[in-house]
Design a protein around this nucleic acid. Structure first.
Length: 495
RNA sequence: GGCCCGUUGGUGAAGCGGUUAACACACCAGCCUUUCACGCUGGCAUGCAGGGGUUCGAAUCCCCUACGGGUCACCA
């Protein structure tokens, strides 16, 4: 059996989208699973829509996700170049072949004519397709139009009465009647190929064995199969994954704000690549047997388990809650050093931490991140979660006020202040001892002791470990907050 | 409109002719904890869009209907 070769062939119109990332991942996993090759190529035949640096952005996204390729952009390989617009000579050669064999013909219709045909068909309620005006032009007629200065586009001559059968690894056999397909353009007047033609030439020449892509390409597939035939190539196996839907069950549109759509945005927010890969893999795919009961898979496990025929035919809804849960899971699994390194830029950007860090401050930040690590859905959340550490005025919650209104609280606060003043340091263990002393001194313990301290110091009735929190806040801040409560108790309580 | 594709709980989903219809997220309750979170335990489906078949037996096979989606570009 021949080597499995798959590819990801985006057009350079923007950043790597979650849909594209999933397609790339599925292709990648399938190639790796079979010990084959994964190719990344850029399909930039539509010059008008190309965006500067978009190809690089696509590749950056793939690299960040850990999806590496064996051949293609940047890497080169036996089938270079891997960018359509650098392959124009190749397309020209195959275009000649189609023209010579009669599988394609020049079409001189103007945009206006085509537009008129289309409107007429729509008005009559027929399926819009090319009327065939230029299908059987005589050489003389062609010469006539050429003389008028018309530049022809090239159309593929779709055979009539054919049934085109597609082998789809996820949908099984899918049949199309060629009569429903009009002659379509394979090359523009300036000679640039259209997508349907370029992909076929590229996939065939690059010996792609499995074309994995989104469902939106399914209807295009019969056209491509026809080109494969006309050129004498063998068609690859196709695998059309269903679309990704937003949480409302609607098709995900570019301007949909309910879902973050681009990989670099996830990176920005502090999602971990392994979480995204894990999540994307499960978006429209599930492992077989017992493994279907698990959710957490490393890239290596995915390579081992992945199979195209287990890709779902039904559209996949992007479950943002699940993604958060999964990312949180991976954050908890990660080393504190890693999460701190990711969190630092966010804290600095928010002005919470200076750009230049002393070793001492670095250590402090690490402990701060450690305090919140297990509840981070994404790393950027550290800024809002740790807000309490950086404000001068404590922001009391309603629950905190209720606690602080209790009769015995001032006594506890005062006792704690004097304990801190006498203490040599404020390490977590010391804080523990100090609170114990307050307990002995005042007789209050448990919630009677801890809640008042937490409420006065943090303004909240819940939060991460109190000892560590107090230790990180430092003696000055803790004392001043307690003092503030004691001197402004009425104002604090009434809000 | 033609042609394709899909439809299991609040959500993601497993299931491929015979199961008490997995598992996970979310949610609720309990335990743990100075609080929250984590973790652990337990709970959570008027039966698989609706209707017809085929079969001893269907979520699983066939047909129809409804709903959702894709595509019919000199976009990919």
């Amino acid at each position: 059996m021949a080597e499995v070769r798959t590819r990801y062939a985006p057009s350079p119109t923007g950043h790597l989208h979650i849909g594209g990332a999933r397609t790339a991942l599925f292709s990648y996993l399938w190639a790796r699973k079979n010990g084959g090759s994964f190719i990344v190529r850029i399909e930039d035949t539509d010059v008008e829509r190309n965006v500067e640096q978009a190809a690089e952005k696509q590749m950056d996204g793939l690299k960040w996700l850990g999806i590496d390729w064996d051949e293609g952009m940047e890497k080169g390989g036996p089938h270079a170049p891997y960018r359509s617009m650098e392959r124009t000579d190749i397309y020209r050669e195959y275009l000649e072949k189609l023209l010579k064999s009669g599988h394609a013909y020049p079409c001189y219709c103007t945009q206006e004519e085509l537009e008129r045909d289309r409107e007429k068909q729509l008005a009559e309620g027929v399926a819009p397709k090319y009327v065939g005006r230029c299908r059987n032009l005589t050489p003389e007629q062609r010469a006539e139009r050429e003389a008028e200065g018309r530049k022809p586009s090239i159309r593929f001559r779709v055979p009539q009465g054919r049934t085109i059968v597609i082998q789809d690894e996820v949908r099984g056999e899918v049949r199309f009647e060629s009569d429903g397909i009009g002659d379509f353009i394979v090359a523009r007047p300036d000679g640039r190929p259209t997508y349907n033609f370029a992909v076929v030439v590229d996939d065939a020449l690059m010996e792609i064995t499995h074309v994995v892509r989104g469902e939106e390409h399914l209807s295009n597939t019969p056209r491509q199969v026809l080109i494969y035939e006309a050129l004498g190539f063998e068609a690859p196996v196709f695998a059309h994954a269903s679309l990704i839907l937003n949480p409302d069950g609607k098709k995900m549109s570019k301007r949909d704000e309910s879902v973050i759509q681009f990989i670099d945005q996830y990176k920005e927010l502090g999602y971990l690549p392994e979480a995204i890969v894990n999540f994307l893999a499960l978006l429209g795919w599930a492992p077989e047997g017992d493994k279907a009961e698990e959710e957490i898979f490393s890239k290596e496990e995915l390579v081992d388990l992945f199979s195209l025929n287990r890709v779902s035919k039904a559209p996949a809804v992007f479950d943002t809650g699940k993604l958060k849960w999964m990312n949180n899971h991976y954050i908890k699994q990660s080393s504190l050093e890693r999460i701190t390194a990711l969190a630092l830029p966010h804290l600095q950007k928010a002005g919470r931490v200076p750009k230049e860090l002393t070793d001492e401050k670095r250590e402090w930040v690490t402990r701060l991140v450690g305090l919140y690590q297990e509840q981070l859905d994404y790393v950027a959340q550290i800024v809002e979660l740790s807000d309490m550490f950086f404000r001068t005025e404590v922001d009391y919650s309603d629950e905190a006020r209720e606690v602080l209104a209790q009769e015995h609280v001032p006594e506890v606060a005062a006792a704690f202040i004097s304990q801190i003043e006498q203490a040599e340091d404020l390490e977590p263990d010391t804080v523990k001892t100090l609170l114990k002393n307050v307990q002995k001194e005042t007789g209050y313990k448990g919630k009677q002791l801890f809640m008042p301290v937490r409420a006065a110091v943090t303004g909240q009735t819940h939060g991460p470990d109190l000892r560590e929190t107090i230790s990180l806040l430092g003696a000055d801040t803790v004392i001043s907050r307690l003092q503030h409560y004691l001197t402004n108790r009425d104002a604090v309580i009434s809000g």
